[in-house]
Write a protein that binds this DNA or RNA. Structure first.
Lengths: 229, 229
DNA sequence: GAGTGGTCTAGACCACTCA
DNA sequence: GAGTGGTCTAGACCACTCG
């Protein structure tokens, strides 16, 4: 499973950016320079750079040069993804702080939705490179995830555990822009009065498995989605 | 703004697939055959085919051939729907106010994205039962929608007209929570300092067809999506 | 005018599949 | 062995930017 030259060049530059060796906005070596460094032809360098540009790692300006693009911080819409994986994909470090993990009495409304009187409740703060990116406030149906309270959510995400415990059949989400209440904006290190992107996600596995409220800092988070036609 | 050979080849094949000229699973001409048809070198054909594969329009199997890919399995993640239809579905009345409709000089950045120097620009405020629900700020590629400026967007939505004028092949959207600038919160009748849900949507029809910024009052708008699986 | 990225050419070698 | 896609070369011309 050896790597082709254009992949080597791509990885080398991507790694350099991830490692902070080149900083946002900085000029990268020109294609001709890279040809010499890597002893390859320009088409090979060009392909590597074109793909990096397509992946939004660099920005290219004809007649000027190639620059390190600002880090994206965006998340797939609708895909039920794992935030830890998403952060890792961006080459950043993910940490989680477990704020709450307990069994609680369901509110009447939650009891109706879940069809049970007691629920598991977790609150986990996810950080990217040490900065809060998501506050995950989650209710879980105990019958579908009996060992939920025994998990170490600094090592695995609730999402991961739930997917393994009970395969998700169906999901639904609402996306809202709100002004975060002070308790939440404090956790997200958000200036009071700043916007907050709230994703409310329900997942079903036979019956309602989980209801998650995911709060994100509006200033450094966006959802992203693609469609074909 | 003429088209480069690899784009011509790409579009030609994409159009053929869209038109049903080639059906799902069918073998496409080999790269060598396309070289002869289009009188170009193989690298040029290869780039066109590689990009079509990346866009999931075709599937390539080394040593075998290139095939028309099945239409995307998962339907739209998050439908960004016709706002007029959405409002009508709720049994409410939709009105639109056209604030701007003109041809403008593209900013350097927009010119790069669209590949043309002049663009059409529209700003339409959509109201549900008389209350602002969406401010639609849109840039349109004139070559794909020549009659854009002649439309009456109080009767039809830009979205509707564009879909008819140039079938959308691909879309992409970003969802952000922001504090709206005063000019926008005034139009949305939003108290200053309230959150605003911003959807930035790009659509492609061969090339970039339209870039829309859709601003919604955070207090009375949410996005909704479902998944199976 | 020197440097940049965007694109193209006319070949080439390779690993692979299929008959 | 003929055909396929994956990749590479060593040049080239162009439009563009900038000093």
């Amino acid at each position: 499973m050896s790597e082709s030259p254009y992949q080597t060049i791509k990885r080398s530059i991507a790694d350099g950016i991830a490692a902070g060796q080149w900083r946002t906005g900085q000029v990268l070596p020109s294609e001709h320079a890279l040809c010499r460094s890597f002893s390859v032809s320009r088409m090979t360098v060009n392909r590597a750079m074109r793909e990096l540009a397509r992946e939004n790692l660099i920005r290219r300006v004809p007649g000027v040069g190639s620059f390190v693009a600002p880090p994206p911080a965006q998340s797939a819409l609708l895909e039920i993804r794992n935030i830890a994986a998403e952060i890792a994909e961006r080459g950043n470090t993910h940490q989680a702080r477990v704020l709450t993990l307990a069994e609680i009495d369901a509110t009447p409304e939650a009891a109706r939705e879940f069809g049970c009187a007691r629920l598991y409740h977790s609150r986990v703060l996810h950080l990217e490179n040490g900065r809060p990116l998501q506050l995950e406030d989650r209710l879980v149906n105990p019958s579908l995830a009996p060992a939920y309270l025994a998990q170490d959510f600094t090592q695995t995400t609730p999402n991961e555990y739930l997917s393994a415990a009970a395969p998700i059949e169906r999901g639904e989400h609402r996306v809202q822009a709100i002004i975060a209440p002070p308790s939440i904006s404090a956790l997200l290190q958000l200036d009071p009065g700043n916007a907050c992107l709230l994703v409310i996600r329900r997942t079903w596995s036979g019956c309602l498995a989980s209801l998650a409220s995911l709060y994100h800092p509006g200033t450094r988070f966006e959802l992203f989605g693609k469609t074909n036609k």
